[in-house]
Amino acid sequence: MLVSKYTQYLSLNDDSTVIWHSVFGCAMQIPNRLTCYLKDSHSFNDYDFIEVFGEGAFETLVDARILIYSTEQEQADIDTLFAKHNPRNKSKIKYLSLIMSEECPFRCVYCIHFANSKHYYNKEKMMTFEIAKASIDSYIKLMLENGETDFYINFGGGEPLLNYPVIAELLPYIKECEDKHDIKIKLGINTNLSLLNKEMAETFIKNNVEIVASLDGTKAGNDKVRLSKNLSGTYDSIIRGFDILRELGHPLDGFAMTVTEANLFDVDTEIIDWASTLGMKEVRIDVDVVGIVKSPMDEVIERLTRIRKYAKEKGISVIGFWSRPAENLGLNPEEEDIGFCGGERGNSLCVAPSGQVFPCGYSNYQLGNYIDIPTIYNNDAYLNLLANRDLKNQPEKCQECPIFGFCRGGCLITKEANQKSTEKQTAMCKLYIEMTKAIIRQQVMM
């Protein structure tokens, strides 16, 4: 009997430790005398273990793959995960995102659309009805052929409301598609709200389009990073949008914010108090996935951990990319396709106004063109995207990482935008690992 090399240890106190397998997960709290045994024993006899710790503990640790019979078998089991969740000749597409506009009236300092997306420079700035319609048709056909039932179309950008007339034309068309195919399509729009008026809001409410908006903290913090084109603050224009939705009886139940070096020290629990007074349920706090290299990551981790705990006591979930590995740790990799995001998993198609298709709206990795959508899952570019997910193809530092199977290399854009420097990626690795540990500690205390 062996202890898996993928076993991870997080000391809680003098009495206990949380352990998990860095590919198969299954976090559990064990007494420290068992921790010492696992750390000290290179190989041992089953009966000796059972004699000391009992049959129940033995079976639990075997089921969790902490105790293994051979490293070869363990590696073979890990290798089967990739084939199982990334089958050849079968579409994994689940989501369609339409980049309605490459332009935006905002110039947020951390914007990954402007920092990374080369398609922003294309001459085609606005999505046409024709390209959107053809993309929707192909997407629905692909989903139906694959037996998928959870349809999701997102209007994104840039700022999609710059192209509101085309969105308004697409909504009845999508309804027609739902009726024709007897399906239900979930809709969402990511907007900065600055252009939202009552008519648009009513249209979105009527068509069940979920509105997703961002606000980077209180006025002081927001107006340091979330800027208009003329570099003035945007807080008031965003709040005006919040107010329109609330007056129509559809207040937002949360929002997303981004932490950068400029607003880090403004991000604190008072934004949670504000969200709580408005009856919100979820606040997403992301750390700038491209910049924020120089700031002390320890400060970011301390703040996120503290805010998450504070919000939880007020009934508000605080999530972000940093919570994804911990969320994944609760899943069974044999049943679920564990990934960092839909783009990384190969679930998303994002169509730009030029017709180019990307796995993420901020990526430069082109999967094909919108006319390729019906067969895109067999394209070399798409297959390469999937091949990069194979755990055995990951660098050694990832294979030795405590969240190896749960982070999946992190954000595609972080890697694309920082190809010449490992500094940012190293900082993000630290964020994801330390936040996973912090979340485990908070979960144990619950």
Binding site: V18, C26, A27, M28, Q29, I30, P31, R33, L34, E51, V52, F53, G54, G56, A57, T60, L61, K94, Y95, L96, S97, Y152, I153, N154, G156, G188, N190, E210, V212, G254, F255, A256, E282, R284, S317, I319, F321, S323, R324, A326, E327, N328, L329, G330, L331, C341, G342, G343, N347, S348, C350, P359, C360, G361, I439, I440, Q443, V444, M446
Partner: peptide, 30 residues
């Protein structure tokens, strides 16, 4: 026979937070 250590140990599963599948992010981030 001399008992050197208790035979039973308690192992408690840690309940991790549910996968946040909300729309507080673009569709590709699900």
């Amino acid at each position: 026979m001399k008992e050197t250590a208790p035979k039973k140990v308690e192992i408690k599963m840690v309940k991790m937070p549910a996968l946040a599948m909300t729309c507080k992010k673009p569709s590709n981030c699900h």
